[in-house]
Design a protein around this nucleic acid. Structure first.
Lengths: 211, 211
DNA sequence: AATTTTCTACTGGTTTTCCGGTAGATATGA
DNA sequence: TCATATCTACCGGAAAACCAGTAGAAAATT
């Protein structure tokens, strides 16, 4: 693999960005741009027959979100390594891209030499970020660490059972408690999360990493 | 910061690991081990008064999960950078640690020089992983990419509103549709996810990254 | 143009959740 | 020992979700 040509594809909705990246990379030894696309659909069409070792992927596209496209590409072309290239600098977005299978993330102000380094590292099968992204990721924001409901042991146990789709009656049977007891716990959980129903509570709990 | 002594704390439930790490690091210039703990509680007690620039954190502890401890430490001591040091090599676990605010992750078989490099990089405010972890992260498993329900545009729209805690009547009002239409969409969503109710559907949707 | 998919809306009913509380027993902490 | 927190259980009822379908219109695809 080392010494082989890296086949690179790029998706970005701005032609100027595509032009700029091509110019930036044309001097890079061992990197060949095999396709550039302005939207998700063209990229997907290319990948069903074409080949890309590395895909530089913007997150904001006209016909799909980069998150959805990332997940879809990893499904149809698992060997393609995806590097997000985006102006989105929120830590949560970076984590979501990783969750969708991306192998790395760079902000659009990345320098040429760093861009090339990241492309090479991704090609080597390594998770890779530009330095700016590594700094962002090492700094969880205050919002992300905002007060998360402190659940008692029993509450957490019941929350997990609710998440498994169990009804109040089922949970009562499993824990050998009265359904009215479970109803009280549910009520308390909704109050702790400040949510009107289970749907919103599940979202909050998962986003806070309580499950 | 560069040239300053790094105050390092370590949490692991195995005394032999604590001993081994101390031995491994005692020759490292600029790294001072300020505390070692065998459980979550002792570590938390230390951090309420003591100080650690970097915390090496095992995930399996006798009195708490490393995930919960990570989140809790970041809340009481946001400046402390946390590096997970674990035998857990699943990509999902790594992502969860990042979500709880960790600045990096290493497997326990990490070499001494790499361990020291990661400690230094974390101290510099950078996200950092051992090479083995970078390789794992760049390789989403097949299970993670398993078939995810394909939602229509309208279904996704309604799913997001459900996740925001809206009732059928509220969603109907917002979208100018009949509540009966929304009920049909809900039924179809439950069938696509194969879940008995909204709670389980929310869990599945979030874990698949559909939101 | 024909077919398929998506979206819309409906029936009549059952099940489940949510509401806004009260309150005693047990466990835990100071 | 005392205070606090957690867990347990209850009231009566309204609101909401879930069930198992049918079915036509519009949009999208072939």
């Amino acid at each position: 693999m080392s010494g082989q040509t890296i086949h690179l594809a790029i998706v970005d909705d701005h032609p100027l960005i595509l032009e700029g990246l091509q110019k930036l990379l044309e001097g890079a030894a061992g990197i060949e741009i095999t396709g550039t696309f302005g939207n998700a659909q063209d990229c997907l069409a290319f990948l069903t027959t074409g080949r890309a070792d590395i895909l530089l992927l913007d997150i904001t596209l006209p016909d799909a979100s980069g998150l959805d496209l990332c997940r879809e590409i990893k499904q149809i072309s698992p060997a393609t390594r995806i590097l997000a290239l985006s102006n989105h600098s929120e830590r949560s977005m970076i984590l979501q891209m990783l969750q969708q299978g991306a192998s790395g993330y760079m902000l659009k102000n990345v320098a040429a030499d760093e861009l090339i380094r990241c492309i090479r590292e991704a090609h080597e099968g390594l998770l890779t970020f530009s330095k700016a992204v590594r700094e962002i990721m090492a700094k969880p924001s205050a919002a992300e660490l905002r007060e998360i409901p402190r659940l008692t042991k029993r509450e957490k146990e019941i929350l997990l059972l609710i998440a498994d789709g169990k009804t109040t009656a089922e949970i009562a049977g499993m824990l050998h408690l009265s359904p009215l007891t479970i109803e009280t716990h549910r009520k308390n959980l909704l109050q702790k999360f400040g949510t009107p129903n289970v749907a919103a509570m599940m979202k909050a709990a998962l986003q806070h990493g309580l499950m």
